[in-house]
Design a protein around this nucleic acid. Structure first.
Lengths: 235, 235
DNA sequence: AATGCTATAATTGTATACAGTATTTTAAAG
DNA sequence: CTTTAAAATACTGTATACAATTATAGCATT
């Protein structure tokens, strides 16, 4: 009877972490929102979450406050926290920003990227290409991330890296069956290659234009996918 | 004896607010960091802050967690929170990002700004110009903010607005006697005007270039000011 | 039957208590 | 006098308790 709140535990926490409890709780809730386990508009009740995670309200509260700052939850005073709903407008806004920031990354990388940076990008993009060829879903995702991380890092601007990273993670909330449509992934390695080439030739303008094109095309793909998704139909 | 921790209260809190206590605490501490009342590298001790503000540790803790996410404080596990020091590198990184984002704002504004948006920018820039002419320090700051807010708003991208706003606020940490050097402010209304004109003519390219130039020149001015500041000498 | 009021339950907001760990101080030995 | 070790202190990390507010349900009245 003591666990009547654990109807069926939805959230799983990585308890074997050395990090402080509040960090683990934060990342658990954040991941649940980003991956859709916690649905948009859903109310987040502190005691319920605390019971599900087997912790007290304190770390849950601190996590919710941080998620509020990130925009993943909205707070109504004296009522509670709700998972922020996402709309097509949000997607457009985020992609506009990503476009500008990734173009900046490309521009800076063209000026600053070291040989190792470029090599890292090339290797991860080759692995990405292989994954696409083999229709290896998880591999596609992982290696795409690897390429982009290498790309961002080569900008030599840590803040910029962080901002784009956060943006990218939030985009996961839109990732409706992102993996299944492999066909859409085919042109990506080529787009990446254009960016790498421009960076290698220290051509800032070319690099930023290629990066911007890449984002725009990604946005188009996502809009196509979302158009099929009834959850976003009327927005 | 009960207030031995209030040596001399440095932080003042707006207690007459209807907002939840944690919000007031958050903004108070944030403002203290941004305006330099809490010095870079200074340790933030929860009980001390709580006593100074006359609240319990809970809202202070939540505020510090949020400030950590914003990058204004850094946490060392089991040790505490410290005000993040700012370096010239930080300034460069932030200005690079601001440049890209403000250029994006200009580009979008050139496509979307309404007549009212443009009118708002013109009016605030005129007031800004007057303040500069009259060497009206506070007026310069206020009207500069007003112009930029109108500018950001005309992008039609709320997220973008927020991001730049946060960036701009963090830049205040560098504002070492920003007001005194009035001479540096003279060219600003003209730069603003270039941006407004381009937006009015729906010339995205021109607008974004003008915005980028504006940021670059502002960065140069700040670097000149910081070069005289011993606190940033060796960085 | 519908609407409004009251009482109760539930939930957030804030404070405090307790445990564990890092730091500092003090004392003793070299 | 310096160095080291142990104890005391102070602070963070987590949990819980209490207060204030809001939602809910039941009852009464129209």
């Amino acid at each position: 009877m003591e666990d009547r709140n654990k109807k069926h535990t939805v959230l799983k926490m990585d308890t074997n972490s050395c990090k402080p409890l509040r960090e683990v709780v934060f990342e658990t809730i954040r991941s649940a929102i980003v991956h859709g386990t916690l649905k948009p508009g859903e109310r987040l009740m502190e005691v319920k979450l605390a019971n599900e995670l087997g912790v007290s309200r304190t770390p849950v509260r601190e996590s919710i406050r941080k998620l509020e700052l990130e925009g993943l939850v909205e707070m109504v005073p004296r009522k509670g926290a709700y998972v922020t709903p996402m709309s097509i407008t949000d997607l457009r806004e985020m992609m506009e920003i990503r476009g500008a920031l990734e173009a900046l990354v490309a521009e800076l990388a063209a000026q600053r990227a070291s040989a190792e940076d470029i090599d890292k990008m090339k290797r991860s993009n080759r692995k990405f290409e292989n994954s696409v060829e083999k229709n290896d879903g998880p591999g596609i995702i992982d290696n795409d991330i690897l390429f982009h991380e290498a790309f961002y890092q080569s900008s030599g601007n840590g803040r910029l890296e962080n901002m784009i990273h956060t943006l990218r993670e939030q985009m996961l909330r839109f990732r409706v069956e992102y993996v299944r449509r492999i066909a859409l992934k085919k042109p990506l390695p080529g787009q990446h290659r254009q960016i790498i080439d421009a960076i290698e030739h220290h051509d800032s303008k070319q690099a930023s234009q290629a990066a911007l094109r890449h984002i725009k095309l990604t946005e188009d793909d996502m809009l196509v996918l979302l158009a099929d998704d009834e959850a976003f139909e009327n927005q």
